[in-house]
Amino acid sequence: MIASNKAAGGGIAAPFPHLSVEGVTLQYKTKEHLVTACYRVDFNVLKSDRFVLLGPSGCGKSTLLKAIGGYMKPVEGKITLKGKEIGKPGPDRMMVFQEFDQLLPWKTVKQNVTFALTASGRLNAKAADERAMQYIEKVNLGKFADSYPHMLSGGMKARVAIARGMAMEPDILLMDEPFAALDALTRRKMQDELLQLWEGTKFTILFVTHSIPEAVKIGNRILLLTPHPGEVKGELNSNGSDHPDPKTGETLSERIHKLLFADEVEEAVHD
């Protein structure tokens, strides 16, 4: 069902899914409770997908991303990347976080990118330098290569984090609400830039967000999750523009909104 629905957006019919999540249940312990973050979630990400996990807070989407990153183990089900089961964190799955402190403050922009490459043993110092500069140029930060993170604005920090993730040329780039801490204007700009970057290299993205407009804009495939615990509600295609459907007259975001909040009081949706 999932594969046959695949349409636009660089959809290459892969023989097997690039990343596959099968019946994954995740639980974590707080001081008082054992919390089930998501329950038997299934989805497949194909190569070059811009796959979005969308849901209100508490649907376990960030926890799911952490599990894919290898930071926690599912209590049931399994996650495989290119056919291999995920064990521990590794540079084949680079993470981009929401927090500004994801950049190492004691390294310059360039060193932050090269450090990722050399620390993981991908490249030697010289090759890492070249690769880093290439990606820093790509995110238009060439002039700031020797600046320290505390001198940069929030949007620039997010760009460095993306450059760092892309420079590693990972199998999949995991983005955990990367633009949520940015102001609305910067956020919109970053979304455009991300899409441009994707046009250039067609890397595989798994993008977590709680904003419907962002999901519609970024994703070519959107997984909807319901909260407490997170369960799959549906999977939709998006072509990036939020035009009304000719048959129903309903836009994609209206459809998503209905699916997610059908039996709930209206919640504030922000851009």
Binding site: P89, P91, M95, F97, E99, D101, Q102, L104
Partner: peptide
């Protein structure tokens, strides 16, 4: 911070 720890482990350190 948790984020910085996760970044470090992400590099396989």
């Amino acid at each position: 911070s948790q984020t910085m720890r996760m970044v470090g482990r992400n590099y396989g350190l």
